[in-house]
Design a protein around this nucleic acid. Structure first.
Length: 775
DNA sequence: CCTCCACTTCTCTAGACAGCATGTC
DNA sequence: CTAGAGAAGTGGAGG
């Protein structure tokens, strides 16, 4: 304890906050005690994790114990932020801190690191690659652990926690936002539950309508009503200006990107800016415009807003643009941000006044209410520690004084938030993780499988594993059918050894039958299990292992395999039309579940797309029944990638497909990953087809750079991207040899510094360089 | 033949984890 | 629980 306080003190923390004290008093320093901590954002959650790390990773002399701690965060941006923060705080004690996320990895083996900041998915992936340091883990802190209830990502966290919590030597500390059923989650984790409402800055909750804000207490009673100056007809504008004039800042949460941009455009705060601020904002504006070679519509819109002291923030912005907006807001140059949920959780972006504009959002099920938990996270942004005397979380109703709407808003502000539920039964989650668990050897047979499921949050919550097990048996059949796993029937070890593969095959079909019987029976099916089923053993195949390590959905892998096999047949009958094959491959990857959602098809576009698909013979099994609208969407998406790799100018691309810079980058990133996966999978299929193989190899590079085929040789060289490659190519320099033979020319074209870098990379006079050339 | 305007029809809808191997202008 | 805003298209009236 003494050591801990000393370390905290050396990092500027003299005293613990009430919830932190509560956790320490509850036994945080007991290295075997798990915790679930539900306290508001910005009340010092992270520090609780840090205390646990210090406790495990440093001894009384403040030197490393060589134990390992993991910090699992939900976003890469957050991981980066914490990595920098922890490095600054704890490296001085000799702790080695690593960041391990999808697009970045410490070069060295993570074995030598004490504190690793990672995401759930990355950690899961590392486990699949069988890193051996997992056994050294002594403490795991999970940030935003309530995400276990997230439809798409919760399952991964659940599988991970299920594994971790069986290892009794690991202390697990879950940090959570307020949830409706914390006891349930805590019990499952064998954790002590700490709930606290303490906040560093007081939060006033209110409902805005017309030009009034009605502040209410936790019982829903009105505390006071504030009249906002009606300086314009735009009530939102009045609300924002009201805050700014009191030295406050605003974040307005909207339910769509368009809504956020529209709201931002309506706020002109120029009148309220100082001359200094105006000139600095002009600088920011230029920065925003220079992020892309040619500013697109989104860039121009943002630049225009920023000049007026406002910004919008959503996934359509590039990473750099988002950073500019966030930085501008922190420096108080940008007075208000209109955003989508990008800012509702994750990175630290507090403000004085958080305004909720929408309480419903469009989803696959229609226009549905936004969860209360999310609204609470949004209004929880209000109140900047040490800057604001208080924060204001306001739900704004544009509609006059409709009592129903006010009542609805009130319900959002008071009372309990939703309970969270296991999302393990999500099909994609089950497919992916069943394969993963078989890969890692966590599940070797049916007994392991049932044991594992019994330990999940799902089983704990529903007290019934029958339904999910039936589901899983179907999935194991699917995995077996596609050659990702093998189902073996063995009565005992000896018999198994004498089994040959032919016998195994026979047994598999028996297994299938018995599983079907199980599904049909609704009453006491678990007791009527046949012996066949009892004895199912799961073995991973090389293909399955690859799919698992690539971290893609097995269903996507099936699409890829089917697609490539079909394409192979086509290349045999007509080995000439390369462009056609490229579109086929792009179409295949557009179908994968990782690429969803794909672009929507407008009615006017339908005919052209159908004609193209027929011409290219893509997924047209039966012309009479036509092509499904889904397939049209996949194809449209494929065409986007096709245009991208054919160097269609970005602005034209975005306009033509009606997307934004950030979304394009995201899609290209996903596509790159899928093409890489397709390439790796194809290599395992034992199909001798050089056309497809070359095509996949080239596509991976072309997708990364957005480049045509002709400059591929140049792109393979370090320091040459698509711009430099194009310059060289236009000057007649087409490959590494040309570069070596035209050294003077290269210097003229690219400048001496870069030219020298490239030449030394090509290692004209070193053997290593020559080897690279031959690759 | 053009412009304006009212009306109808169409379109669109949040976010962001994972592989791999290192550096675009 | 299952919408609603805004863009695009249409067509008639009026000059």
């Amino acid at each position: 304890m003494l050591m801990l306080m000393e370390v905290l003190k050396e990092n500027g923390i003299a005293e613990l906050r009430p919830p932190q004290k509560k956790v320490v008093e509850g036994g945080l320093l007991n290295k075997n005690k798990n915790f679930l901590i539900c306290i508001p954002t910005a009340s010092g959650k992270t520090l609780i994790g840090e205390m646990a790390f210090i406790n495990h990773l440093l001894d009384n002399n403040k030197t490393p114990t060589n134990k390992k701690g993991l910090f699992i965060v939900p976003l890469k941006a957050l991981a980066n932020e914490k990595y920098e923060e922890f490095k600054g705080k704890y490296e001085k004690y000799g702790l080695k801190i690593a960041l391990s996320i999808g697009d970045f990895d410490e070069k060295e083996d993570l074995k030598g690191y004490d504190l690793i900041i990672t995401t759930a998915e990355k950690l899961d992936s590392l486990i699949r690659h069988k890193v051996e340091w997992i056994k050294d883990i002594s403490v795991v802190v999970i940030d935003e652990i309530h995400l276990i209830g997230d439809e798409s990502r919760g399952g991964t966290l659940e599988v991970l926690l299920t594994k971790l919590k069986t290892k009794k030597t690991i202390q697990i500390i879950g940090l959570s936002a307020t949830i409706g059923n914390p006891e349930e989650l805590a019990k499952w984790l064998n954790a002590e539950l700490i709930v606290d409402e303490w906040r560093p800055v007081k939060l006033k909750k209110g409902i805005g309508y017309g030009n009034k804000i009605m502040f209410i207490d936790d019982n829903g009673n009105t505390i006071n009503e504030v009249i906002v100056d009606e300086i314009s007809k735009n009530n939102m504008f009045n609300l924002v200006v009201d805050s700014i004039l009191k030295d406050g800042s605003c974040i307005i949460f909207c339910n769509s990107k368009r809504g956020a941009v529209g709201e931002a455009k309506k706020l002109n705060l120029k009148k309220y800016l100082s001359p200094d601020e105006i000139s600095e904002l002009r600088h920011l504006k230029e920065e925003v415009l220079s992020v892309l070679d040619n500013p697109t519509k989104t860039c121009k819109d943002l630049a225009e807003c920023i000049e007026k002291g406002v910004a919008f923030h959503h996934a359509g912005l590039t990473y750099e643009q988002r950073k500019i907006v966030e930085e501008g807001f922190r420096k108080k140059l940008i007075k208000a941000i209109c955003c989508t949920p990008t800012l509702s959780a994750g990175i630290n972006m507090p403000c004085r006044r958080a305004i909720i504009r929408d309480l419903k959002r469009f989803s696959s099920r229609g226009y549905i209410p936004i969860p209360k938990m999310e609204i609470h996270q949004c209004i929880g942004r209000a109140g900047r520690p040490n800057l604001d005397p208080y924060g204001e979380g306001i739900i704004y109703i544009n509609n006059t004084e409709n009592p129903e709407l006010i009542e609805n808003a009130k319900n959002y502000l008071i009372g309990n938030v939703e309970e969270i539920y296991s999302k393990l039964s999500n099909q994609k989650v089950l497919r992916t993780h069943m394969l993963g668990l078989i890969t890692t050897g966590d599940i070797k047979n049916k007994n392991d499988l049932e044991e594992f499921i019994k330990n999940t949050f799902y089983a704990y919550q529903y007290q019934n594993t029958k339904k999910i097990l039936e589901n899983i048996y179907e999935i194991t059949n699917f995995l077996e059918k596609n050659g990702f796993i093998e189902l073996n029937y063995r009565r005992d070890e000896n018999k198994d050894k004498s089994n040959n593969s032919h016998n195994n095959k026979k047994n598999i079909s028996n297994t299938n039958n018995s599983i079907k019987m199980l599904v049909l029976d609704n009453n006491n099916s678990l007791t009527i299990k046949s012996r066949h089923e009892e004895d199912v053993y799961y073995n991973i195949t090389p293909l399955g292992k690859k799919v698992s390590e690539l971290y893609i959905d097995p269903l996507s892998a099936e699409y890829i395999i089917d697609g490539l096999k079909n394409l192979h047949k086509k290349t045999l009958s007509n080995p000439k039309n390369m462009e056609c094959y490229i579109l086929h491959i792009l179409y295949i990857i557009s179908k994968t579940t990782e690429m969803q959602p794909v672009l929507r098809v407008r009615r006017k576009e339908e005919n052209d797309l159908i004609n193209d698909m027929i011409k290219l013979d893509i997924d047209v099994d039966d012309v009479i029944y036509g092509i499904s609208s889904e397939n049209l969407e996949y194809f449209k998406n494929a065409k986007l990638f096709y245009d991208w790799i054919n160097e269609i100018p970005e602005e034209e691309l975005l306009l033509g497909y009606n997307i934004e810079p950030g979304i394009l980058r995201y899609n290209v990133e996903q596509a790159k990953w899928m093409i890489h996966s397709a390439k790796e999978i194809f290599n395992l299929l034992n199909i001798d087809n050089k056309v497809i193989k070359d095509c996949l190899n080239d596509l991976e590079i072309r997708m990364e750079y957005g480049a045509k085929q002709d400059i591929i040789e140049l792109l393979k060289i370090k320091h040459i991207g698509r711009a430099r490659a194009r310059i060289l190519y236009n000057a007649g320099i087409k490959n590494a040899n040309d570069i070596i033979n035209n050294q003077k020319n290269i210097i003229n074209l690219l400048g001496e510094k870069i030219a020298r870098k490239i030449l030394s990379e090509l290692g004209v006079d070193t053997k290593f360089g020559q080897m690279r050339l031959s690759i």
